[in-house]
Amino acid sequence: MLHNITLIPHLVRMYVRTRMEYRGAMFLAWLSQGFSYGAMYATIALIIARFDNLGGWQWPDMALLLAFHLLAYSLGASLSFTQFRDIEEKVRLGTFDAILVKPVGPWTFLVFSGLNIGYGGHVILATGLMAWSLTQVGLAWSPLLVLYFVAALISAAMLTAALMTMIGTTALVWVRSRHLFSIFFGFWELARYPLNIFPAPLQMLMITLAPLAFLAFVPVAVILGKPVPLLGAWAPLASLAAGPLCMLLAVFHWRWCLRNYQGAGG
């Protein structure tokens, strides 16, 4: 365990140096993704500009929701998305086997030897938008609110990482997991809108099986003092617990899949 932790900076340094070999492409990617999210948000802003609000959420509220969604996602995904998406290919090519013959926790190696610094564009856009929206929504800041804000952000990032870990790890046993990522991103896209506008079954799904409501809507609604469907007064607690709980689940799932790993066959 201690060995794994002391190894982290070395693994991260190797990966960062690899990415820096292609820094031009990376910065271009930051720019393009920032642009793309910006354009997507602009279309949402256009809807609200024409219709005044979406389910009772006005533009500054929406901006905070979008910024929280993007920031929590990119923090969690930097620890998980590309790493676990590629497990499928690593299994097929046998490079996952090469990780298993090292005296390192495979999770530590996988996550930190690929700690994705490609989310720069996301983080810059998200923090900028968040800073602006926070000046607009007029929150009554208190130490407790600050604490909640930070904790909820961490919980949401953990949720992202945990879900991606679970989805990607599935490839160890079922060889393919890409399709599960497409389902994830379907719900992930919905998670940037107020939950209350969706039909009840969808709301239910998004706080249980596909708990992406906790990625942004629930914590932001709590921060803004807006009603949370289904959860009501439990919303603050649930949003803080969602990340750690999913993480725990991910740990068990990872261990189970690792035990049942069958290689590429032959």
Binding site: M14, R17, L93, T95, D97, A98, K102
Partner: peptide, 20 residues
Amino acid sequence: RNAREIGVVFGQRSQLWWDL
């Protein structure tokens, strides 16, 4: 524990860092 005391070479998959 086994991994500490063995070395493994896969002929067709590299364990080296490609760009470094």
